[in-house]
Design a protein around this nucleic acid. Structure first.
Lengths: 249, 249
DNA sequence: TATATAATATTATATATATAACTTTGTCAA
DNA sequence: TTGACAAAGTTATATATATAATATTATATA
């Protein structure tokens, strides 16, 4: 069991990172309980023989991780683990896209249509204007996993379509190739049950649980360029995270 | 439109934060495009008349926000916005618990039972050992919103039960009162459809979409102390976030 | 006792500097 | 042209120091 109490200057790990781990471990062991004040920065300096800025950096890391809170003039206090600050990432979602060996993208349909009310609202355009509709399925090991339906602004001047279609893999969206044409995106996750259209595309039955990941992307002028939804079978995806002080790597 | 280009030393906002905003805005405006190299740290020092450490701090902030990436010896580069690093917070979930005015907790059932296989596995105990089962519903404005089913280790020596039951509001779990008895938790989110039991508790129909938030909490010896699930109506909860460079506050 | 004031401790911000590690570029020789 | 090497540029880490802002504690005063 790791039980570091001093900072090893010969170690590969930098001093500030070592101090972070030392403090985290002490908190994890219950030496400092929620509500307790940590030693002041100057005390930590003396005890571990590091400079104030190094201590500061370590404290900041603990702050970022939501493990402690600081009050100017008072001290640094251990936070009780709570769920309010917990985050979960799309990493696992991203992983599905990552290995290009196992996953393929099948384009079901591409057509130019007149917008319905919902799309007009999302893309901030007039009802009836033309948009490009793309429907695709992401297939892993022959199994359809994710259904994607997207509508893009139809703009002959700036042919985003070609760029989008070139990327038949959707890969660019998730790894940041530098070819992405959008500056910013709003994303929402909802729980849903599969509609018939979605179930057909995913080759399963309707009324199955699913994640619905809705996205709107904006260009550099903050105008919407595309809107769409990823539909993901609930039995194939699960988001995990931890709260509190987890073990050191 | 904010268009800050110099650092105002009289401003309330500290220099490093101002520099973060300046750089973010330039990236948002497309002055630096994905893949571009930012000016080197020493150049930024000269241009904005701040010390290297201050520039460093700003760059680190951009790193944390996933806006740039750095390569030692080479430079700092603007990242293309990608979904891989996107995170969702439980803030909105947390908000439901926060206002004690509107929300009440109704305890449906508390009993001591012998564990089934699933619970024994989650709590790392033997099959048939006793656990405490608690079923509650969180009600907002008279409407049942969240159904919670939890099983705790039955340990006469350490009566966690009383503590749990005192907190009839579940509030402590989410705000970190310092009274929480656990050190660490694993959390998973799944998409699901309501079972009959869940639908009854939530006073709605089964087969409706729902989020299932499963949690296991551990004590300071890393032994599981409780396991449970929050079931949340999908039409009452939605997680949102943004990707890329969003506008400054 | 209660209140205001001073002193002290603590975090927050900022500067200046130094060394190390790594990358890129340029130079020179084979 | 190619490869080896040196030089310059860039980020990463660390120290030492200073000032400001806030909180806490002690002290003096009424």
């Amino acid at each position: 069991m790791g039980n570091q109490t001093t900072i090893d200057r010969q170690a590969f790990e930098p001093a500030y990172a070592q101090l972070v781990n030392i403090l985290k471990e002490q908190i994890a062991r219950g030496i400092y309980l929620p509500g307790d004040r940590l030693p002041s920065e100057s005390e930590l300096c003396k005890h571990y023989h590091v400079s104030p800025m190094t201590v500061r950096r370590s404290i900041n890391a603990l702050l970022d991780q939501g493990i402690v809170s600081t009050t100017q003039g008072s001290g640094t206090y251990v936070k009780a683990p709570d769920l309010s600050g917990v985050t979960f990432s799309l990493e696992e979602f991203h992983n599905i896209f990552k290995d290009k060996e196992r996953t393929k993208v099948k384009i079901l349909e591409v057509l130019i249509i007149k917008t319905d009310a919902t799309t007009a609202n999302r893309l901030a355009i007039d009802l009836g204007e033309r948009t490009i509709l793309i429907r695709r399925v992401l297939i892993r090991d022959g199994d359809p996993i994710i259904y994607h339906k997207e509508q893009l602004i139809y703009d002959p001047v700036r042919p985003i379509v070609e760029a989008e279609l070139e990327v038949t893999s959707l890969h660019g969206l998730f790894v940041g190739t530098g070819e992405t044409k959008f500056k910013r995106g709003d994303i929402a996750i909802e729980a849903a049950v599969l509609t018939k259209e979605e179930a057909d595309a995913l080759n399963t039955m309707q009324m199955q649980p699913a994640f619905r990941l809705e996205h709107i992307f904006y260009d550099f002028e903050d105008k919407p360029v595309s809107w769409g939804r990823f539909i993901c079978r609930g039995d194939r995806l699960r988001f995990t995270t931890t709260v509190g002080v987890s073990h050191r790597t």
